[in-house]
Design a protein around this nucleic acid. Structure first.
Length: 424
RNA sequence: GGAGAGGUGGCUGAGUGGUCGAAAGCGGCGGUCUUGAAAACCGUUGAGGGUUUGUAGCCCUCCCAGGGUUCGAAUCCCUGCCUCUCCGCCA
């Protein structure tokens, strides 16, 4: 959520900045609602104050044995007025809140103009697109031929957009997870974390998936209103929901491997082949909870932590900054890491690293105690994939294939592969 | 799944209809003392929101959450959630 004070005091400027991402703020509606809120809130609080003072007088009178009947008569009609005022205020505030919950974050000044992913700006490249002296296969042909990937059986078990993996490819998939966790905990100072894979609606509201994007989520049947997590970002970031963190405990850096579940509603024709877009995939997620003045630097370091995975695996990639039209609802600024996929002859997203500034923190009431003011203030949250495991597997298979259809395992993964260096 | 107990400020814990945002202790912060520290002593110490030029003042809300009773609720009633103990079951 953006700061409601900005809506009150700087509405035109906020509306202007949101246009960068193609979001039109209904200013007339907000001005009217805000005026009503102020009027009703001031009135209602005055009534509450009056009730309080009168009730105290009644208490005192009763204690000293006076007749309280006239005092009671004087407050008689106060109750109804007060109830009406409170109800009206609650209604206005929930209406206002519903609107604010649906307003996206204000884009950071660095975010380039643009409407779609075509307008994202490439910042740098690492490595060169892998060249072959034969026609490279895509990961589906490789995986199926190697006997390690079975999409038909998965669709029998469940449906489309799932996979069954087996043998050395399943092991490689697991090896990637171990490698990433080890790298981020040993080299980058993150704390390994294990979390629930189902969360409640409060958590999803906290990170911004609800109320607007429920169609992207899998909701569980049953008495509890639980959802499967679409990313570890949700449970991990919500660790600090309703917490005031000591300044000494900042920054907090979490690394967490989880499966992720996404309904992929609205992407029916997209990436129907292979592992790229599944309803269930594994991800190693990096989350940092930082002081506001440190979030920009944190985004840079977190991004480079994710880049390290690609570099150590020897996978060519580029970094783009998302334009206003493509940056996600909750993010102020996002870098995407895109890995080179020979099977598609293009760069594809493998990690998305974002600074949410105080947007999620405000929804979560996640704060730290600023020693300067000694007051609780909102933290900033930063997160990114380090990396999406399924897509990393795709990239490895496609970039490390040879003419015979074998896949050579990069050296950093050898310790995790139990002696296997080639999958054939 | 069955039976019981309970959820109060950073922590322990008192409070069963009014003067309670809440005793007391611990912890934290500031000070006195001290060469310095400890001890002792004194003071201070929750969060959210409104109004406002205001980190001033005034006001509102919050004692798990949501409803209700009442002039007045931490305290009474209902519902939900969570925790603990015992029994059963179980990876």
């Amino acid at each position: 959520m953006i700061d409601p004070q900005l809506i009150r005091n700087d509405l035109d400027n906020v509306a202007q900045q949101l246009l960068k991402r193609g979001f039109k703020l209904d200013r007339e509606q907000l001005i009217a609602l805000e005026a009503a809120r102020k009027r009703v809130q001031v009135e209602t609080q005055a009534l509450q104050s009056e009730r309080n003072t009168r009730s105290k007088l009644i208490g005192k009178a009763k204690a000293s044995g006076e007749d309280i009947a006239p005092l009671l008569a004087a407050v008689a009609e106060l109750g109804d007025k007060l109830k009406a005022g409170e109800a009206q205020l609650a209604e206005i505030q929930s209406e206002l809140n519903a609107i604010l919950q649906g307003v996206p974050n204000i884009p950071h000044a660095d975010v380039p103009e643009g409407e779609s992913e075509d307008d994202n700006v490439e910042l740098r490249r690492w490595g060169k697109p892998t060249s072959f002296d034969f026609e490279p296969k895509d990961h589906v042909d490789l995986g199926v031929a190697l006997g390690g990937m079975d999409f038909e059986t998965a669709s029998k078990l469940t449906g489309s957009r799932f996979t069954v993996m087996s043998g050395p490819i399943a092991r490689l998939h697991r090896a990637l997870i171990q490698f990433m966790l080890d790298l981020h905990t040993r080299e980058h100072g993150y704390t390994e974390t294990y979390v629930p894979y189902m969360v409640n609606a409060d958590s999803l509201r906290g990170t911004g998936q609800l109320p607007k994007f429920s169609e992207d989520l899998f909701k569980l049947e049953g008495e509890q209103e639980y959802y499967l997590i679409p990313t570890a970002e949700v449970p991990v970031t919500n660790i600090v929901r309703d917490v005031i963190i000591d300044a000494d405990d900042m920054p907090r850096k979490f690394v967490c491997h989880t499966p992720c579940f996404r309904s992929e509603a609205g992407s029916y024709g997209k990436d129907t082949r292979g592992l790229i877009r599944q309803h269930q995939f594994e991800k190693v997620e990096l989350v940092q909870i930082v002081k506001p003045q440190e979030s920009n630097a944190a985004l840079e370091s977190l991004t480079s932590n994710a880049e390290q995975v690609l570099q150590q695996l020897g996978l060519p990639y580029r970094v783009v900054i998302l334009c206003g039209g493509d940056v996600g609802f909750s993010a102020a600024k996002t870098y995407d890491l895109e890995v080179w996929l020979p099977g598609q002859q293009q760069y594809r997203e493998i990690s998305s690293c974002s600074n949410f500034e105080s947007f999620q923190a405000r929804r979560m009431q996640a704060r730290w105690r600023n020693p300067g003011t000694n007051k609780p203030e909102l933290v900033h949250t930063v997160n990114g994939s380090g990396l999406a495991v399924g897509r990393t597997l795709v990239a490895l298979l496609e970039n490390y294939q040879d003419a015979a259809g074998r896949v050579h395992i990069p050296a950093v993964l050898h310790p995790y592969m139990g002696g296997v260096t080639v999958i054939e």
